[in-house]
Simulated scan of single mutants.
Amino acid sequence: MRHGKKFNHLGRKTAHRKAMLANMACSLIEHKRINTTLAKAKALKQFVEPIVTKSKEDTTHNRRIVFSKLRDKYAVTELFRDVAVKVGDRPGGYTRIIKLGNRLGDNADMAMIELVDYNETYNVAESSTKKKSTRRGRNKKASQDTAVEAPQAKEAPAAKDEASENEKPETSQE
Rank of each mutant, 00 (worst) to 15 (best):
T60K: 09
H61R: 06
H61T: 09
H61L: 09
N62Q: 11
N62D: 10
N62K: 10
R63N: 05
R64Q: 13
R64T: 09
I65N: 08
I65G: 02
I65R: 04
I65W: 01
V66L: 08
V66A: 08
F67G: 05
S68H: 09
S68P: 00
S68M: 10
K69D: 01
L70T: 06
L70K: 06
D72W: 01
K73T: 06
Y74D: 12
A75Y: 00
A75E: 03
V76N: 02
V76C: 08
V76Q: 01
V76P: 01
T77Q: 11
T77D: 14
T77Y: 08
T77M: 09
E78G: 03
E78M: 07
L79N: 05
L79W: 00
L79Q: 00
L79K: 01
F80V: 06
F80H: 00
R81S: 01
D82W: 02
D82E: 12
D82S: 02
A84P: 01
V85H: 03
V85K: 01
V85N: 02
V87I: 14
V87H: 03
V87C: 04
G88E: 07
D89P: 00
G93E: 05
G93L: 01
Y94W: 05
Y94G: 03
T95N: 08
I97C: 04
I97S: 08
I97Q: 04
I98S: 09
I98W: 06
I98Q: 06
I98Y: 05
I98V: 15
I98E: 09
L100R: 10
L100C: 02
L100M: 14
L100T: 07
N102T: 10
N102R: 13
N102D: 11
L104H: 11
N107E: 14
N107P: 07
N107T: 13
N107Y: 13
A108I: 03
A108W: 06
D109M: 12
D109S: 15
M110K: 09
A111N: 06
A111V: 11
M112A: 13
I113M: 09
E114N: 07
E114Y: 04
L115F: 15
V116T: 13
V116M: 13
V116L: 12
D117M: 02
Y118T: 02
Y118H: 12
N119P: 05
E120C: 03
Y122V: 13
Y122A: 14
N123W: 10
N123G: 07
N123M: 14
N123C: 04
A125W: 10
A125P: 04
A125V: 11
E126M: 06
S127F: 15
S127R: 13
S127Y: 09
K130Y: 14
K130P: 07
K131W: 12
K132A: 15
K132C: 11
T134N: 13
R135Y: 14
R135T: 14
R135W: 11
R135D: 12
R136H: 11
R136I: 13
R136A: 12
G137C: 11
